[in-house]
Design a protein around this nucleic acid. Structure first.
Length: 332
DNA sequence: AATATTTTCAACCGCCCTGGA
DNA sequence: TTCCAGGGCGGTTGAAAATAT
């Protein structure tokens, strides 16, 4: 007997398999406007031929702007090992303690990296794992700069409700890892992290490969710093390093959206983008100062560079600016 | 360079829990 | 109380990429 999910998917002829760029854009745009939740209704409202569970999974594991992309750090790896020794395969619980990481990501990392590593360790025995008798922040790290990124604190009334509920059935083992306060010493730079678009030689190297018209590959950019930490020249340098074919491709709105989302500062990113790409011009409408368009940076570029017509797909009014174009001279 | 093998990870499956009717 | 739909979770799969031969 099929599960209700299978039944539901078959009844509605819902799509399965890898998400396309257009689907991602639909979902991103819809959640940006309406927020997340009520996934089944959201999937229909966003015009996606996907089940709600698929939409939720895509958002939670891949599109959410607060995701921390890139490799698991040594500090994070240590936390995973410690918490897995405590709680076993409670991946969602472990993920709650590592900001920006998903349960799926941690689960995959454990299976592909840590399990084998630990099992092969000569002195590793399942019951001999060092218990969390020491605060994680006290454990030594070969690189002092990586030290004290996470703190182990007792569960108290300030813990989130979900975290509290999750630990209540494990008396004596309740801990709460809190992310550190914003640091002015966060590592800088933008990194393209998806393996499908080629190897990167460094954080400064944003050379990417994108074959327009080929099967869509997910693209993502993550920022290890907030816009406050990034100076304009840094963003400008990163964007200037992007292959021009990317800037003119359908992938650009997604790249910019994620850049803006992580940078939390449309103005800076858009200013850098337009400064480094003379072919792209943002023209404010009558009555708007030229600088004011930066307040709507991501929406403007999403709207005007988006291969989907937002008015058709989302029932939205025209954006508050006349247009952007890859060739400003065309409109003169 | 070509092929085989291994690794990675996005996505799906099925089970369970919860809340509303 | 029972049923059902929605959502969350852990386990699993399989295609693509990376690595080894």
């Amino acid at each position: 007997m099929n599960s209700r999910w299978t039944y539901s998917a078959e009844r509605g002829k819902l799509k399965k398999g890898p998400w396309t760029f257009e689907e991602d854009l639909h979902l991103l745009r819809y959640i940006k406007l309406h927020g997340e939740g009520r996934w089944s209704a959201l999937a229909k409202a966003a015009g996606l031929q996907r089940c709600g569970k698929s939409c939720r999974l895509r958002w939670v594991n891949y599109l959410r702007p607060d995701l921390k992309l890139g490799n698991i750090t040594p500090e994070e790896e240590r936390v995973i090992i410690e918490l897995h020794a405590l709680w076993g395969n409670r991946w969602s619980l472990i993920a709650e303690r590592i900001p920006g990481r998903t349960d799926n990501e941690i689960k995959n990392y454990w299976r592909s990296h840590l399990k084998k590593k630990l099992q092969s360790a000569a002195n590793y025995k399942r019951n001999d794992c060092t218990p969390l008798s020491l605060p994680i922040q006290s454990l030594e790290h070969p690189n002092p700069q990586h030290q004290t990124q996470l703190q182990v604190l007792p569960v108290n009334s300030t813990a989130t409700s979900s975290a509290s509920a999750a630990t209540e059935d494990r008396p004596g083992k309740a801990i709460n890892l809190q992310s550190p306060p914003p640091s002015s010493n966060i590592s800088q730079g933008l990194t393209v992290t998806n393996r499908s678009i080629g190897n990167l030689t460094s954080d400064q190297d944003l050379r990417m490969e994108y074959i327009n018209g080929a099967q869509q590959k997910p693209l993502s950019i993550t920022s290890f710093a907030t816009a406050h930490d990034l100076n304009q020249n840094s963003i400008q340098n990163q964007l200037a390093g992007i292959d021009p074919r990317i800037l003119e491709s359908d992938a650009m709105p997604s790249i910019l959206y994620q850049l803006y989302s992580s940078a939390q500062d449309d103005a800076t990113a858009l200013q850098a983008f337009t400064a480094s790409n003379s072919d792209v011009t943002v023209i404010p409408p009558d009555g708007f100062e030229s600088d004011s368009c930066f307040d709507f940076g991501s929406d403007i570029l999403l709207w005007n560079m988006c291969p989907i017509d937002p008015a058709t797909h989302y029932g939205l009014q025209q954006p508050p600016f006349a247009s952007t174009s890859l060739n400003a001279n065309d409109r003169q």
